[in-house]
């Protein structure tokens, strides 16, 4: 069998996703053996950025115009294209910038912003159609393995699509929101981490981004009842997911 041709592209992010793909412990040998690496900057010198690719993995938020242009070209050359990691999936940490006047943010960092060409940060699906989302920061190993193995076995990938609460229940964790009054984002956050934070005695901070159709406003109301300030609630919903509809909607209840 011919090995599937893989391309890996990085936009504005920490490069941790590519790191995770290349070295995620249990599967690194299989990954390296079963795919033909056509383009992956962190792993391969040279390489062909123009494809074609059987599978393209894209990490990072889109924060400059050239990235969007390049992304559209990659889409055309790729049979399957997955967003990997919270930045590419829903804007992630770099999208915090969009909660503030962007010029203010930029001029806090650079005295001379004439050489800075940033646009409003967005997830990659603001520009192209995506075949699947490998969520998480860092991306969950289960969904990553699912994406790669689905390409190898030519089937439709089945990604995790429920909230962190489900994982807590499966693990038998005590609910940190109900029992300890911690402002846990678990009820509205997509699972895949293995309910990591609640298992480590702290509140989930939504690094896997919102679960699709999560009821953000209900949780925001709960936080309000618990006595969290407006500002604190806003921060909970904009650390990961400032660029998402699910979390932005939660902020509406703070207006009344």
């Amino acid at each position: 069998m011919k090995k599937p041709r893989l391309g890996f592209f990085k936009y504005s992010c920490c490069a941790g996703c590519e790191f995770q793909v290349m070295y995620f412990q249990k599967h690194v040998l299989e990954t390296l053996k079963n795919f033909e690496f056509i383009f992956a900057r962190m792993l391969l010198r040279g390489g062909n950025p123009h494809g074609p690719f059987d599978i393209a993995l894209v990490e990072g938020t889109i924060t400059e115009a050239w990235q969007a242009d390049e992304l559209k070209k990659i889409r055309e050359k790729s049979t399957l294209l997955f967003a990997i990691g919270s930045c590419a999936v829903d804007g992630g940490i770099p999208a915090i910038k969009s909660t503030m006047p962007e010029l203010d943010v930029e001029s806090k960092v650079y005295a001379d912003i004439t050489t800075i060409h940033s646009i409003r940060p967005h997830a990659i699906d603001a520009y192209i159609k995506v075949d699947g989302y490998i969520r998480g920061c860092p991306p969950g190993e289960r969904d990553l393995a699912e994406a790669l193995s689905s390409v190898l076995s030519d089937k439709k990938p089945d990604f995790i699509n429920y909230s962190v609460c489900v994982e807590c229940k499966l693990k038998g964790n005590v609910c940190v929101l109900v029992a300890y009054g911690m402002p846990c984002m678990g009820p509205v956050t997509n699972a895949g981490c293995g309910a990591l934070c609640p298992s480590m005695n702290r509140a989930c901070y939504a690094c896997f981004g919102p679960m699709k159709q999560a009821n953000g406003p209900a949780l925001a109301r709960k936080f309000k009842m618990m006595g969290l300030s407006k500002e604190d609630i806003k921060r909970r919903f904009t650390e990961f997911g400032a660029d998402t509809l699910e979390f932005r909607r939660a902020l509406d209840i703070l207006e009344d």
């Binding site: 504005s12 400059e64 915090i96 503030m100 943010v105 806090k108």
Partner: peptide
């Protein structure tokens, strides 16, 4: 491309700073 951490950290609370800056690298 810049992500402006030093810019958007302004206004965030101390207890979320470590989780945010860890994403620098």
């Amino acid at each position: 491309p810049p992500r402006f951490f030093e810019g958007f950290l302004v206004g965030r609370k101390y207890d979320e700073v470590p989780d945010i800056v860890s994403r620098i690298c």
